[in-house]
Amino acid sequence: MHTPSHLILNLAALRRPVPPAMTWPILVGALIPDAALFVFYGWARGQRLPSQTIWGDAYYSQPWQDIFAVGNSIPLGLLGVALGYVLRGFRLGPWVGFLGASMVLHHLADLPLHHDDAHQHFWPLSSVRLISPVSYWDVDHFGRLGATVELLLVLVATAHLWPRLSSRGSQGLLGITAALITVACGVLVLLG
């Protein structure tokens, strides 16, 4: 699933009825699983690797897969939820809990939409990868279906969030993000 989709879906699932102050931990938790991917891509472009090498070889190499496993770990996300619960009486407790919950939601949304690029979601307990028959991007593995499901979920979540956002700026950012996802998924569905 595209990173901006996780932002919208996690906000829709977790933000209400919690205080708006929890928006940031939800957003950060939605980003953490993909953060190493952005670092990796910056490194690969800095090495002047061609796209085929980036996504065909370098992405699957060690230590990158080990690094990706840390951010995509369901046990670590659940640890955040548990710590948030234990620390609920302290100022940072809810922040940690929502961060962990948002990470876990990201992982659960990724599980059914990653085929060849499946993550080690159970690290450090296991290095097993759950290979889905459906990809969110690879047309050889029902990528059009994956992109359509992603787009529909984002549009429903956007409609849910829109009236609940208190500022025009937030609504504008949501609208721009949803439009970008619509374009990305639409290109895949139509041109894939």
Rank of each mutant, 00 (worst) to 15 (best):
G192H: 12
R144S: 15
Y41P: 00
G71L: 02
I54H: 03
Y85A: 15
S126P: 05
L161Y: 02
R15N: 10
S61K: 04
P124R: 08
R16E: 14
S135T: 09
D34V: 03
S167I: 06
A109L: 13
F68W: 01
R48S: 13
G172E: 05
W137V: 09
I26K: 08
T148E: 07
Q171S: 06
L111F: 10
A118C: 09
D116C: 07
W162C: 04
R129W: 07
R144M: 14
R15M: 10
P63R: 03
Q52V: 14
R88T: 02
V128R: 11
T23E: 09
L37P: 01
L87D: 01
L27E: 15
L79Y: 02
R48P: 00
N72G: 06
A147I: 08
D140C: 00
I67F: 01
A82D: 07
T177E: 02
Y60D: 03
A13S: 09
G46E: 12
A35I: 13
N72D: 05
H2C: 03
G29L: 06
G42R: 07
V104W: 01
Y60M: 00
R45C: 12
V39T: 05
L145Q: 10
W137T: 09
G56D: 13
D110M: 06
W137M: 07
A178D: 01
V134G: 08
H107W: 02
P124Y: 09
I176E: 00
I67D: 01
H115D: 12
V183T: 09
A69M: 04
T23S: 15
G46K: 11
L31I: 14
G192E: 10
L155H: 07
P33F: 03
L188P: 05
